[in-house]
Amino acid sequence: MRILDKYILKKYFTTFFFTLLILIPITIAIDVSEKYSKFSDHADLGVGEIISDYYIPFIVNYGNTFMPLALFISTILFTSKMASNTEIVAIHSAGIPYIRFLKPYILGSLLICLVSLTANHFLLNESNKTFEAFNEAYLRREKKAKTFVPQVNLQLTENDIVYFKNFNLTRNNGYGFSYQHFDGLNLKYILTGSRISWNKKDSIYTITNYTKRWVGNKNDSIEVGRKLDTTFNFLPKDLLYVDYLAGEMASPELYHHIKESENRGVKNLNKYKVELYSRTTLPVSSIILTIIAVSLASRKRRGGIGVNLAAGVSLMFLYVFFMKVTEVLGASATNNPLIMVWIPNILFGIIAIYLYTKAKQ
């Protein structure tokens, strides 16, 4: 590795972490001013618990969210400083081509991208669990967790379907239960009950006032009873689909959950898919935004750092705007979530190629 690479990488990482350390305390200060009254409403809530269960996950989550913004701003700042000091002119005068000058920037953004990918897919879910649990216990006036699920249709396998008129997740019981088994398109077996309860200790469902019916061309039969203990390959938690649960799962678990839910006939899982795909698109944006920042800031301008910073911040907020809009559109049942969450990176990737080509010339 050349001295030039070490020099740029040192500036790249130190300025990035410095910018991040400025943004996060500002965010914490704003959050404390908003949440102080809610914290003080709970006499049993200590400062240590607030820091460990709320603000450490807060720093981790928001630090990851602010990563592209901090990276973009820091790259513009120190590259503009190099340009204003004619360091970049000296580098090119030494016969170093623009693509070689860009190499340490790409290397630095790749390292940050890999760290962010690992955190997003395998680590941040534990932080989200702690954060959500604290919010649910102390901060939300209206509880986020649903306890009552109406009109549930669940496809267990290709040939097995269950239906509930409603299910109470707190009491683990439901009403208006029906289980149907098919052989291709032919209905073979129906089990209905007025009430069904889940026994967590024994992993058994108890159906009250049940009716069994075997369907055949000539030998239909019916069995009626008061109580029936049986098993099914689903749990009560599988009946609930809420957005914040996606953030509490590591990516392999989330991917398995999406596939299993699709096999069970759950229709719109796009919010879960947006969460899964966004865990990749956000880290990848660090590479794209780094190229844009270097291409904007590597030329010495009459307005100095201020002009580069203004142009860069405008592009950054435009990226954030597109990212939020496409996430909302991707969660819609009518759109492809994979395409939607990648649109900002595709558009800004084109901008990065254009600015790089122009800067190289």
Rank of each mutant, 00 (worst) to 15 (best):
D238I: 00
K300V: 01
A293L: 03
N270Y: 03
G216N: 08
K212V: 14
V224S: 15
K218E: 11
S286D: 06
K212Y: 08
T280F: 13
N263Q: 07
L235G: 13
V294D: 10
V242I: 15
L276H: 04
Y244E: 14
N217E: 14
L282K: 09
Y255A: 09
I292T: 05
K212P: 12
K273Q: 07
A297R: 02
F232A: 06
L228W: 06
S285G: 05
E248Q: 09
D243N: 14
S251W: 11
I258G: 00
S203D: 15
V294A: 01
S278M: 10
S298P: 13
V215L: 11
E253R: 09
L269A: 02
R264N: 05
I288Y: 05
P252D: 11
G265C: 07
K212T: 15
Y272C: 02
K201T: 11
K227Q: 07
T290I: 06
K300E: 05
N270P: 01
A293Q: 05
L239C: 00
D243C: 07
N219K: 09
V274Y: 00
E262R: 13
V284W: 05
K237V: 13
P236H: 10
I291L: 04
K201L: 12
S261C: 01
H256V: 12
I222F: 10
T290Y: 02
N233W: 11
K237T: 15
T231M: 02
T211G: 08
I204V: 12
R213C: 10
L245M: 11
T281G: 10
E223G: 10
L296G: 01
L296E: 14
K273L: 07
S285Y: 02
R226D: 14
F232K: 00
N233F: 14
E253S: 04
L269Q: 01
S221N: 04
A297K: 02
T280L: 08
A293V: 10
K227E: 10
V215A: 11
K218L: 12
Y205L: 06
H256R: 15
Y244A: 03
